[in-house]
Structures are given as structure tokens and as C-alpha cells.
């Protein structure tokens, strides 16, 4: 099959099953360092823990999160701040008070807090690729700096979150101060001119700073009728990761991998064959009756078949 031949599910399954039989043997014997247990044939996979929909994203559950990542064969994670920062929303504390306490904590958080988490992850062969946090106008500059500082201590290469063009513009000076990048993560809200949703909006955001990188969410981009393959072809040098998942076009629903319109197989092969340093972070929101770990395993298997 030539690279240009369109993939159908049948042809993919046929060719992948033949390939995986041989490749799995070599994978078994591969001496990959622990942090790269999910580096597969040149594609570095990781996980956005939203996939574990049943696991509240709180610090107390971080050991369970790391345990699940290991079970799922993941050596990389995009860690949401809520797994890291203490919660102050206890009974009797107003939302405003909790927000102020969190700000104060961020400004004075000891290095050890972050370093310990980094060590927890590293001991299990997990590296923290990015730190996910939704920057907003309630955060003064010193708080944004504190967040970048914490992310750096965690070993993250950058911060990423859900915000729009205006917030991104405000964040221009921050990544350089910390030797990091800022990820621009798209959703599919085409009705909001401030939102990252279309190719044009992401490109506009990227133009603000060379320290900005796209975190291309393939589910949302597909739902917004974007062309994931075209985007990668044109802008791969500005893409640090993809949030890899499936949805149907025209603001359609999330689906298990292979049942929607996102070209997951083609995206992964494009990353593999061009040796792009683009992380493939699995993230999905489709419903399932299976527990989260087996579900992630199934979706990850789908991806592995695409790159072996």
C-alpha cells in the first residue's frame, strides 16, 4: 500500500495485524529507558488524565493516577494543576477566600513540593511533559510567574491550558522568563472570536510569540471541521503535542478511536515518518461501560497498531 493510499478500517486492520506480530517481538526486547516506556517506533505517547473520568483530579488521587499510568504503559503525562495544588474549597470557606488562599499558596509554595511530585513520577518512569492550567485575568503577573516556576520544578517543558487569544497575548512575556513554552489548546467553539478553534485562530495565536506552541486537539479540531493533517503539514514546526482523540465533524459527539472523523492513524504515521518531536497525548471523552484503565488500553492499542 503506498503512503498515499487512503486507509480504511479494513485495510488498516489487515496490514497492522501483520506488522504488529513481528514488531511486538522486538518491542518486548527493546531496552527503553523507564521514562520512555510509551515511546513506540519513534512516536512518544503520553496521556491527558481526563481519560480517567472516574478519578477526581485531586492531589490525594495522584498515587492512583500514577499507578494507572504505569498500568497503561504510559511514560509521559500532561499533569493538571489540580493533581498538584492543595484544595482550599473546604466547608465554611467561600469561593473568594479559597481563591485567595490558592494564590497565596502558589506565591509561597516550597520547591520541595514540586520536586517531590517530580520524583514520585520519575521513580515510576513517568515524565511530566506539560503542566495544564487555565490562565485567566484573576491571576496577577506574580501568580503566573509562580505557576511557571512550579511547572519548571516539575520538569515540564511548558504550561498549557484552555484560554483564548486575549489571554494568550497577555502571556507573551512569561514562557521566555522561565525557559519554557506556552501551549495553545483549541476547542471547537467557532462562535467565539476569542477562542482557539480554527486554523486561523491558532495561527494568529502562534504569531504572538515563538515561545508559543500549538497543542492541537484532534477531537475538537475535527468537530470544528478543521483539517488535522493539513494543519500538521503546514504548521508542524509550531506544534508541540496533539491531544489525540476522536469526534465526529460538525460539532459531533466524541467517539471511541476509529469511530469518528479524526484521522488518528494518519496523524500518528505522519509524526512517525517525519520524525517530528510532537507528543501524542491520548485524551478522550467518549462514553464507555468499561473501567477507565481497560478503556485507555484499548485506545492505546489502536494507536500502537498505527505506528508499529
Amino acid at each position: 500500500m503506498s503512503p498515499a493510499t487512503p486507509l480504511t478500517r479494513r485495510t488498516f486492520t489487515f496490514s497492522a495485524s501483520a506488522a504488529i506480530a513481528g514488531a511486538s517481538r522486538s518491542l518486548l526486547h527493546a531496552q527503553t529507558p523507564p521514562g520512555n516506556r510509551s515511546l513506540i517506533n519513534g512516536v512518544q505517547f503520553g496521556l491527558q488524565p481526563f481519560c480517567y473520568h472516574d478519578l477526581p483530579m485531586i492531589p490525594e488521587n495522584r498515587p492512583a493516577l500514577f499507578d494507572r499510568l504505569v498500568q497503561n504503559g504510559m511514560g509521559m503525562v500532561e499533569l493538571h494543576a489540580t493533581w498538584v495544588e492543595p484544595r482550599f474549597t473546604t466547608p465554611g470557606v467561600s469561593a473568594r477566600q479559597a481563591r485567595e488562599k490558592l494564590r497565596d499558596w502558589r506565591l509561597h509554595a516550597p520547591d520541595d513540593h514540586y520536586l517531590k511530585i517530580r520524583q514520585e513520577a520519575a521513580a515510576l518512569g513517568i515524565s511530566i511533559f506539560t503542566y495544564y492550567i487555565n490562565f485567566n485575568d484573576t491571576m496577577p503577573d506574580e501568580e503566573v510567574d509562580a505557576i511557571f516556576r512550579g511547572a519548571k520544578l516539575l520538569g515540564a517543558r511548558g504550561c498549557v491550558g484552555s484560554y483564548g487569544l486575549a489571554q494568550a497575548q497577555r502571556l507573551i512575556p512569561f514562557p521566555a522568563r522561565h525557559g519554557m513554552v506556552l501551549g495553545l489548546h483549541n476547542h471547537d467553539n467557532l462562535s467565539d472570536p476569542d477562542a482557539f478553534s480554527s486554523e486561523a485562530s491558532i495561527v494568529k495565536g502562534l504569531s504572538f510569540s515563538n515561545d508559543f506552541k500549538a497543542t492541537l486537539d484532534t477531537r475538537h479540531f475535527t468537530a470544528a471541521n478543521g483539517d488535522c493533517l493539513g494543519f500538521l503539514e503546514r504548521h508542524h514546526e509550531r506544534v508541540s503535542s496533539v491531544h489525540l482523540g476522536d469526534r465526529r465533524k460538525n460539532n459531533g459527539r466524541s467517539t471511541p478511536f476509529g469511530e469518528g472523523d479524526a484521522p488518528i492513524i494518519e496523524i500518528l504515521r505522519m509524526i512517525r515518518d517525519n520524525k517530528w518531536p510532537i507528543m501524542a497525548l491520548l485524551e478522550f471523552e467518549h462514553g464507555t461501560l468499561r473501567p477507565a484503565v481497560p478503556e485507555v488500553r484499548l485506545m492505546f492499542d489502536y494507536c500502537k497498531r498505527a505506528v508499529v
Binding site: 476547542h187 471547537d188 467553539n189 467557532l190 462562535s191 467565539d192 475538537h220 460539532n251 459531533g252 459527539r253
Partner: peptide
Amino acid sequence: AGIPQTAKLSPMPQFSD
């Protein structure tokens, strides 16, 4: 139909299928 016009980050998807 979903709710494509929204101030939220992610519009409510449509489930026409």
C-alpha cells in the same frame, strides 16, 4: 442540534446520529 453558539469553551455537541 447541540448548542453551537455559546460563550463556553466547548459547545454542547450534536447527537444527530
